[in-house]
Computed example of a mutant assay.
Amino acid sequence: MAIVKSKLLKQLSQNYPNFLKKDLEKFTDIILNEIKRSLRRGDGVELRNFGTFRVKTQKASIKRNPKTGEKVAVPEKKVISWKMSKEMFKKINNEE
């Protein structure tokens, strides 16, 4: 199940009732925009006890369209990769 921004804001407002909803929305916008800007510059982003985001270059290749079997040239592109931290891995796998 993916989390959308509205659900994240709802959860934050429940956990922190003293903050105004519009302030929480501004706060999350600032954080997400800074992450986007850093990745756009090619910098990595590390969120302690969560994971790291990095930009990697995926080489150009020839793929196959599964529906028609036709070969398709895919150009080089940048992709975002995420690696979870050891703490996150332990929490997900109940290893504490």
Rank of each mutant, 00 (worst) to 15 (best):
L47I: 15
L8N: 03
K77Y: 15
W82S: 03
A60M: 04
A2N: 09
E87Y: 08
N15A: 15
R64D: 07
V74K: 10
D43F: 03
I31Y: 00
Q14D: 10
K83L: 11
D29Y: 06
R54E: 12
I62V: 15
L12A: 09
D29T: 09
D43M: 06
L8C: 01
K83Y: 07
D23Y: 02
G42S: 01
E87S: 14
K91S: 11
I35M: 13
I35F: 10
V45F: 02
D29M: 09
Q14I: 02
I3G: 06
D23S: 00
F53W: 15
K7L: 09
F89Q: 04
K5L: 04
K77W: 03
M88G: 08
K90E: 13
L9D: 01
D43Y: 09
E46G: 01
K22P: 06
P66V: 13
K7M: 06
L32D: 00
I92E: 10
M88Q: 11
K90N: 15
A60G: 14
L9N: 01
R54G: 00
V79L: 09
K63H: 05
E96M: 03
G44Q: 07
Y16G: 03
F53V: 12
D23F: 00
Y16L: 13
Y16F: 14
N94E: 15
F53K: 13
L32K: 00
F19H: 02
R40F: 02
V45L: 06
I30Q: 10
K78V: 08
F89G: 01
I35P: 11
R40V: 04
K78R: 15
L8Q: 04
F53G: 10
P17S: 14
V55K: 09
E34L: 12
K56W: 02
V55Y: 11
K26A: 10
A73T: 14
Q58H: 12
K7R: 08
N15D: 13
Q14S: 07
F53C: 12
E96S: 05
N18W: 00
S61K: 15
N93S: 11
S81Y: 14
S6Y: 00
D43Q: 10
S85N: 04
K86M: 05
S13H: 14
I30W: 01
P66K: 09
E34S: 12
E96A: 05
S13V: 07
P17R: 10
M88D: 08
S85M: 03
G69T: 11
V79H: 05
V79A: 14
I31E: 02
Q14K: 08
R64M: 12
I62A: 08
I3V: 13
K22A: 15
Y16D: 04
T68K: 14
L12E: 05
N33I: 01
N49H: 14
S13F: 07
F50E: 06
N15V: 02
K91T: 13
